[in-house]
Simulated assay, not measured.
Amino acid sequence: MDATTVDLGPQTLILARLAEGIGDGQLDGPTPCPAYTVSGMLAHLLTLSLAFRDAGRKRLGPMTDGAPDPAAAALPPGWRAELPKALEELAAVWREPAAWDGMTRAGGLDLPGAVAGAVVADELVVHGWDLARATGQGYAPDEAALRLAHGLLEGAAAETGEGRGMFGPVVAVPEGAPLLDRTVGLSGRTPDWRP
């Protein structure tokens, strides 16, 4: 892969391990993303994995046409088998250079493949952090996916200005903070969030 693409496989494996470590008793707990409980976040990750799999294949349709709806995020009973499979398929699709080329659609928005790849890296990194914080697990995201996510969020914050990012107000983080903390702050989350 060249410098404009990232292998999402390491980050999807990290997410699959996080999901495996979540107990049934934790599913109703809050996450740093106020729109989602742990269960809702897992459902969101399952849906976005399928949507961005299709976006990477340029198979546009129902999965790529709609924006995520937190209220509709219902976790299916077989999620423990379905989520790792969806994450694996997602990573396989985005290993293909064609996924990063041309135009595609995700969340109902038409966008270049390279931007869609950065968006999915951001989703995987930040929502991995959400799940780790919500369930008390350690978290070290894949460095390449983290750098891509940070670049996307930093660029969006610079474009919008006035302390706003892609997902709302940016949370100020000290300049020397770790890259993960800076990325989390750019996503509108407080790096020291606890349930």
Results as ranks from 00 to 15, higher is better:
residue 12 T to Q: 03
residue 16 A to W: 03
residue 18 L to I: 13
residue 20 E to A: 14
residue 23 G to M: 11
residue 23 G to K: 13
residue 24 D to K: 03
residue 28 D to L: 04
residue 30 P to T: 09
residue 30 P to L: 11
residue 30 P to R: 11
residue 33 C to S: 06
residue 34 P to L: 09
residue 36 Y to C: 00
residue 38 V to D: 13
residue 38 V to M: 13
residue 39 S to C: 06
residue 49 S to E: 05
residue 58 K to F: 03
residue 60 L to T: 10
residue 61 G to A: 13
residue 64 T to K: 03
residue 64 T to I: 09
residue 65 D to G: 14
residue 71 A to Q: 15
residue 78 G to E: 14
residue 79 W to Q: 09
residue 79 W to R: 11
residue 82 E to S: 15
residue 83 L to I: 08
residue 85 K to C: 09
residue 87 L to N: 07
residue 90 L to G: 01
residue 91 A to N: 01
residue 97 P to E: 02
residue 98 A to H: 03
residue 99 A to I: 13
residue 100 W to I: 02
residue 104 T to S: 06
residue 105 R to C: 05
residue 108 G to P: 14
residue 109 L to S: 13
residue 109 L to Y: 10
residue 110 D to I: 05
residue 111 L to W: 06
residue 116 A to T: 05
residue 119 V to P: 00
residue 120 V to W: 04
residue 120 V to F: 10
residue 120 V to M: 10
residue 121 A to P: 03
residue 125 V to M: 09
residue 127 H to Q: 00
residue 132 A to E: 02
residue 132 A to I: 05
residue 136 G to R: 07
residue 136 G to I: 02
residue 137 Q to L: 01
residue 139 Y to Q: 01
residue 147 R to Y: 07
residue 149 A to S: 11
residue 157 A to H: 02
residue 163 G to D: 04
residue 170 V to L: 14
residue 172 A to Q: 14
residue 173 V to M: 11
residue 174 P to K: 13
residue 175 E to V: 12
residue 175 E to A: 15
residue 176 G to S: 03
residue 184 V to S: 05
residue 184 V to C: 08
residue 184 V to K: 02
residue 186 L to Y: 02
residue 190 T to F: 06
residue 194 R to H: 14
residue 194 R to I: 05
residue 195 P to E: 07
